[in-house]
Amino acid sequence: MRVTAQVQAATRRRILEVAQALFASQGFEATTTRDVAKAAGIATGTMFNYFGSKEAVVGSLAAEALADLDVDFKRRDREGSSLEEDLFAFVAAGLRRLKPLRKHLPVVLEAALSPVRGNVDEECCRLRVSHLETVSRLAAKQLGLKELPAMALQIYWSLYAGLLLFWANDDSPRQEDTLGLLDDSLHMFVRWLTDSSNKPKEP
């Protein structure tokens, strides 16, 4: 029987929904792909047609959560705010959306966020590109640059990945330490960026 694109999309959606519910109720480690498949009403083998692993499921959930983050952020864009403030608001908006997945993020961070590793998930790749495009746009606008150098993006991404990892394990009240770390990291990044963009070019 031929499975239509519509059915495929519905099945995929169902897998994501039941997986998120299972991760939340019994934890990521205790949930098997078999559990997810069973709850979604499909065979375990069929599930692998959609997601190669349960880490990939979390990656897709994260990608979905952050899909229209840029649009969301643009609505909050404020005149006269500094680059640090803009970046803070952008990252913080993402953290809010990722909150239901916070505890499960470490297991996919290495695979999904590594800038050097070959991509295991196309969605995560798109997510990274989209995120960095926004960062680049914000920084370029504030600093009057055409685009951010590759080194700057690399540094930013390392800080961001570190922050996510910290956040996933942050047990301070309402994860307030993450807000502090985010602010410190962005302060450091923006200072470095400003200094390096003001430095005269070598002849």
Binding site: S81, S82, D86, A89, A92, R96, R174, L179
Partner: peptide, 13 residues
Amino acid sequence: MHWSLLREMVHNE
């Protein structure tokens, strides 16, 4: 402290 940080505090609370 800057507004973006404080807004997160208000949202969390």
